[in-house]
Design a protein around this nucleic acid. Structure first.
Lengths: 131, 131
DNA sequence: GTAGTGTACTACGACTCATAGTACAGTTGA
DNA sequence: TCAACTGTACTATGAGTCGTAGTACACTAC
């Protein structure tokens, strides 16, 4: 489920944040699904529970999960009021990355194909839920 | 030209790398154009020349610039053999970010519009050069 | 020879990260 | 009511990274 790259410059808690975010976005983890507990995941990954807690806290701040003392941590629904600010940041990052991709030779057509592939794998599911 | 966010968690040299990369990608800095020298830019930004050198070295590793001892640092042309590996990384990052954007409610149409806008501002220039 | 250029190294202090350890608050089920 | 789970928060410590100051070498151009 998780592959931590201990030798990466990227902090372990950030790798966790990214990986969990991916699992939520790709709907491997569903809304209201419970995440592994801080202690359980720490044991599984052989890292400190505080490190897990730091990742979970960041995900909560970004609105991806919610936590209840005594019960656990769960996946949030996507429509969160925080998202407008986060959306702005994601769009800014996207513009930079898309520019870089095009600078490196990726065509607009290739990029559009990537978007369509993503839409087919997750976008359709979201639209289906909205019916 | 540069705005460094001293309070950012992001290291200064990484901010420099990103900003210079943007200037190269958007063709504010042109191929073979000389960058400010390490010492000059350090003075302008009131930071250490070693910090500048670190940023310039990273840009050189990524293939965006080339440096000549005694002469200076210059913008590389885009078609560099390293780019296939970097392209792969950029594509992977893009897929994640595009997925996140769509998860947050950005439609495929909006994303395509963004791509077209980028293409209009820099892509056209690149295609023009290829004529 | 001077004045510019890049490059590399050491040493140091500040900061971040991950850890170990501990403790408190809450929930649930027996 | 208690045990076993859950989340949350804190301190202290060591390791690693970052940016700095300082220094020195190699190169180019005039």
């Amino acid at each position: 489920m998780f592959e931590l790259d201990i030798r990466s410059r990227k902090p372990i808690y950030e790798q966790l944040v990214e990986r969990l975010k991916e699992l939520i976005i790709t709907e491997v983890l569903k809304i209201d699904e419970q995440l592994p507990s801080v202690r359980t995941l720490a044991q599984q990954l052989t890292i400190n529970p505080n490190t897990i807690q730091k990742a979970y806290r960041e995900l909560e701040i970004q609105g991806y999960i919610y936590s209840i003392k005594g019960k656990g941590s769960f996946v949030s629904s996507a429509n969160d009021s925080q998202n407008t600010e986060k959306l702005h940041k994601v769009k800014n990052d996207l513009i930079k990355l898309l520019s870089e991709a095009m600078y490196l030779g990726v065509t607009a057509e290739e990029l559009i194909t990537i978007i369509e592939e993503i839409q087919a794998s997750i976008g359709g599911g979201i639209e289906h839920d909205q019916n």
